[in-house]
Amino acid sequence: MTKASARNMFIGSTIVVSAILLVLTIKSHQSYPVRTHPENITAQVEWGKKVWEKHACIDCHTLFGEGAYYAPELGNVITRRGEDYVRTVLETDAIQGWGTTRKMPKFDLSKQDIDSLIEFFKWMNNVDTNNWPPNKEG
């Protein structure tokens, strides 16, 4: 193989795989109405996502397995613990923080923040994740 042919293979394969990525990206978008129920993304769910980001929850927890591994998975937390338990955790946290062997800082969470976060978790809970996690423990 010459340098020129190696270069041409680099250019050619990059064009082909980029085109495939583009097609698969479009096909992914076509699947979201069914898989993610965007009609359920209310203003409250949107606000919940903002609260999630404001406190950098992802740097301790995972969401669909992505994030830090210091605290439990939350994508399916509604299935695992139920809405009432999640509310108790968040309301307790807003007063004094949460946890002993892993410490969740006391976040400045208003009632609106807590309601929105729960709506966000409920929306996440209904996303089709190809049956992941393997069990409800996340």
Binding site: L21, S28, F64
Partner: peptide, 25 residues
């Protein structure tokens, strides 16, 4: 060129290994 050709050939669609369980098809 062989190395970077292999990088893009495998890595660009290889992005898909992050799309198994996050709501993507």
């Amino acid at each position: 060129y062989v190395i970077v050709g292999l990088t893009f050939l495998t890595g660009i669609i290889g992005t898909g290994h992050h799309y198994y369980w996050i709501g993507t098809p």
